[in-house]
């Protein structure tokens, strides 16, 4: 737009300063003055896949030329054929399903605990005093350090695994929900007062919608953490699941199985993150407008 109006202006008006400019060498005067554009440049379609594809190519070349030792890192095609075999005999699906269930239920209870404690601490002072302190202390303790205690209390069964995942995932959900509730714009609180909203209306129309973006951000962290937590619990005394597969493969030196499991973890993490972003877009339609 700026360029257009500049050239258009030259055609219509002809002030003295413009004549001055024309008396200079033609090449300089006629050249439209366009600033160099700062910034990272134009987006390329599917550009985000460029990096991973490059890595895959390097890996293939390395394996094919023998530059990468098969005992250190299996070739991509070995991983693919092993994956196919594991799917054929059903072991991959079986372990994946077990892992998925653990992750799902752990995350489920993490969401329930994180969201409800976040609401309690966010809406009442007393609630905050009672709930926030212990949670901050719990957050300061590394989750891994809790596992021995949890094993003593709950054994090494499914309950302990789900509890550990829930304990790890609830923290970010709690923090973001609490923060979202607490940072409700004071201007909107004032508005609610002038509109004589009841407590219920204030909660429903102002506070909870204001906290929703925070909760969803917490959920995004929680989902990622649920896969991380899975790795932790499954490499401790598990007899099924992806983590168990990795442990077993390490014992037998099967790098292709380890790589395969890592690829499955990556796929799970990426797709669940995409799912949460999808939910966020659907749940916050008024935000999408801003992004557009």
């Amino acid at each position: 737009m700026a360029d257009l109006s500049l050239t258009g202006g030259q055609g219509v008006v002809d002030p003295a300063w413009l004549k001055l400019a024309r008396s200079q060498p033609v090449g300089v005067a006629d050249k439209p003055r366009r600033r160099r554009k700062l910034g990272p440049g134009r987006p390329i379609p599917y550009g985000a896949t460029l990096g991973p594809v490059l890595l895959l190519i390097l890996w293939s070349i390395g394996s094919a030329t023998g530059y990468i030792d098969d005992r250190i890192l299996s070739a991509p095609w070995t991983v693919a054929t092993t994956g196919w075999e594991l799917i054929q005999d059903g072991r991959l699906q079986e372990n994946l399903w077990t892992s998925f269930q653990r992750s799902f239920w752990g995350l489920f209870w993490g969401i329930v605990a994180g969201a409800s404690l976040g609401v309690i601490a966010g809406l009442s002072r007393i609630g905050e005093y009672l709930v926030d302190g212990p949670i901050q202390i719990k957050r300061a303790i590394p989750a891994l350090a809790l596992i021995p205690l949890l094993m003593l209390w709950f054994g090494i069964g499914e309950g302990m695994k789900i509890l550990t995942i829930a304990l790890i995932t609830f923290a970010p959900i709690y923090i973001q929900t609490h923060d979202g509730l607490r940072s409700t714009d004071a201007r909107f609180i004032e508005l609610a007062e002038t509109l004589d909203l009841s407590n219920g209306q204030f909660l429903r129309h102002v506070v909870l919608p204001a906290a929703l973006p925070g909760f969803l951000l917490g959920l995004r962290f929680g989902v990622t953490y649920s896969w991380l937590a899975l790795v932790v619990v499954e490499q401790v005394n598990a007899t099924s699941g992806l983590g168990y597969m990795i442990n077993l493969a390490r014992t037998y030196g099967q790098t292709e199985v380890i790589i395969l499991c890592l690829a499955v973890y990556a796929a799970l993490g990426l797709s669940s993150d995409w799912l949460v972003r999808f939910i966020t877009r659907k749940a916050l339609p008024w935000r999408k407008i801003l992004a557009d």
Binding site: R187, F188, E190, L191, A192, L195, D196, L197, S198, Q201, H205, V206, P209, A210, L212, L284, W286
Partner: peptide, 20 residues
């Protein structure tokens, strides 16, 4: 009426008017 319109961004215009 404040200097800023103070409309709740998560409610459509008509729902902002019916609020409360």
């Amino acid at each position: 009426v404040f200097q800023d319109a103070r409309l709740l961004p998560w409610k459509r215009v008509v729902d902002n008017v019916t609020l409360g």
